[in-house]
Design a protein around this nucleic acid. Sequence first.
RNA 1: GGGCGGCUAGCUCAGUUGGUUAGAGCGUCACAUUGACAUUGUGAAGGUCAGAGGUUCGAGUCCUCUGCCGCCCACCA
Length: 850
Amino acid sequence: MPDLQKIYDPKSVEQPTYQRWLKSGYFNPDKLPNAKKRKPFSIAMPPPNVTGELHIGHSLDLTTQDILTRWKRMSGFASLWLPGTDHAGIATQILVERTLREQGISRYAIGRETFLKHVWQWKEKYGERIVEQIKRLGASCDWSREHFTMDPRLSEAVQTAFVRLYHDGLVYRGERVIHWCTDDQTGISDLEVDYREEAGTLWYIRYPLLTGNEYVTVATTRPETMLGDTGVAVHPDDPRYKKILGQRVKLPISGRIVPIVADRAVDPQFGTGAVKVTPAHDVLDFEIGERQGLSKLVVIDHHGRMTAAAGRDFTGMGTLEARELVVRLLRESGNLVKTEDFTHNVAYCSRSATRIEPLLSRQWFVKTKPLATLALAALRSKKTVVVPERFAKVLVRWLTNIRDWNISRQLWWGHRLPIWYCIACDEPVASIKEPKATCRRCRNRGYRHDDDTLDTWFSSALWTFSTLGWPKKTKDLRRFHPTAVLGTGWDILFFWVARMVMFSRYFLKEVPFKTVYIHGLVLNQQGQKMSKSKGTGIDPIPMAEKYGTDALRLSLVVGTAPGLDFRMSEQKIAGQRNFCNKLWNVSRYVLTQPPLAKGGRRSRQAPRGGGSRGGTFADAWILARLNEVTSTVTQHLDKYQFGLAVEALQQFLWKDFADWYVEIHKVEKNTAVLRHVLRQCLILLHPFAPFITEAIWKAMGEKRLLMIESWPTNKNRYQHELRTIQGFKNFQRLVIGLRNLKIHGANNQPLSIQPTTKLNRELLARLTGVAFADQAPTEADRVVIADEQLMVPGAVAKQYADWRRREVEQLNRYIAQKEQLVANAKAPEHVRAQAQADLNAARSRIAELE
RNA sequence: GGGCGGCUAGCUCAGUUGGUUAGAGCGUCACAUUGACAUUGUGAAGGUCAGAGGUUCGAGUCCUCUGCCGCCCACCA
């Protein structure tokens, strides 16, 4: 028997165990026993940022996916969990840029090539770290299939996808107002913008009509943009403005003359019902300008400074400075009518937290409507099922109202757009490699590569199939796509999940995953999303070191439900550490039991617990419960109810097995059953707590790895087993009753009683601390516990009766309730029958008490 | 403006199709203990399931409304 330490020490177990798994090759589905006969089950790991650090959210992601992967592997599937990392364009570039800046290096000074070298160095340096951390969590993914979104093969997939979309007319270049981040110097998509409610000012400005002495008054939160106004818009049906429609105004300050136009986008209720239109610096204004044929005047540049077009007095000014000057000039000229306090939503870059500058810009867009239609069909036909279901509605709504996706980024780190422009005439050509042919428009040769890179989510959207070899028709792609499950948090539903469905349906004509399992987010004790920058997070790695990885994993699963956020605390992890220790020690007990008698059956075979084969009642009970739990756990896993699955297992292992069965085993030894139950517990628990279970498994002398042991299916022995479980409850009632008799009847003093029927005195004495005698104690009184009549000292009986009075009251209430149900003619027969049975039981118990 | 989620024991949370006396962990109280385990055991206390109404023989669970807390989407010049 191997020596197990008194306390479970995860440190000495985890690393060697992971190495054993790696060495076995079983993370690779091709190397599993009977690999060819297995049906595929695959999960694509959401790739973490290559230079990032593992946070608690990753841990949750990884834990749930590892549970599924391991469970399916044990259930006989060719289980593939494909890992990888993401180049995370903007996030990584900002990070590296910031570090360089601290050394006084600007990326512009060193140039694109050199900067990228720095980023690659960074990637080499830190890329390994996150992978190590993933391994640390016990993730059973196939590292031979690991990918990085900027691997040459994946880059090829990205370019292929782009070129195809281009030729199909689903990618286009357009000039429009986009969200521009002046700090990161790039355009970003709608999803990368955060809105914050802020107190601001609404300025009312008078624009004089060109003819006559009249004015039209407009309201704005950004007066400086009036330098770029090229029109004033009113609602076509607004009676106030009917007569000035088509007239022109002369803008104060710039003196430019612009038309008054009618557009339905104007809300007559807001402000004065007349809007200044700045098509180059506002999304809505741009749309009005397009419809009404207004010119576009760029007055703010990429750095948030006023351009020459803003006027000589303003050139080079920051927008806020320009605003002050504009307001002052308006006030001086008497054109500032009034100001109002005003709260509105201000757009910020979600990365750099700088204010977004809406800017007219030429960018590449994905035409999303046709793709969204494909995705919607997949969701509606349940080709992809969303768990929990309500998130499907969220996706459907987003896809229904989808807008074109700005995919070009003015970043250096990322997939460069496979777009080439003719040097002579600027005609764009989509091509992975530099085109050799002459320009189709001007017949000249020579191209320049587009400087921009793609939104990082563009490559992520291909992840489930690019990692399997697409665009090549590989064996892996055929076998493992569509993947079985995608597991992720609801926070990247739009960024990633929706786009994966769109692209997969478009390029492969199939869904990327059959199920998407959405877990909640991990919150801190204040109920906020854990955030490293705010220092409110729980760092998983130190927790795993302190309490063990299994404890961390379990704590991320226990007490959670699909899609619901939950709070995390160190205390919770400590609680799961205690459970691991319990498992460890109960195993120690099992291992100290002498080996089976010669000729006895091997523990590998499921022993029969029934009485006729020599098994005790307790054996039959624990085996029945084991079967019940096996089925419960499997059912919960089928529904992604990880929390319920673990809860059922832990209750069984700790309460039923350790507290009851093991204690009974100390008196009535049936080590075959003991070992069998532990063995099966290890199997069932392995997907959740892989390290400790594998270690104990080995200590039990098993030769094969637990990770490929077969997942048990329970045999239908239900009726028989339910009766056994029910019967055992009676025994438990007797034990608990005797314990209470001793504590509350005899003040925990030594107590000797005389049973009137035959009982297993040794066992009961051991479990309850009550001594049994053949003679009745002096001045004995009769007490009935669980149908057993016991002679106890009169004083004890009295005190016990007093103590139990509460219980009588409770029972009376219960009985009344059951009587009502029994008398209820409309209740179904089986419900009434059950109620009758409960009633009878309660009546007999109350008879005991009184 | 539109939508979603939460409100269950002091705290953190489960509770799958309506039907055992609504559960767990932590915490609390009392007690125990040198042989698997104090990262323990035993026993106990603690809940009008946010509120109101409805459907039903029966509601934590289904419907309507209200209140608080959190989130998402849209963006208002």
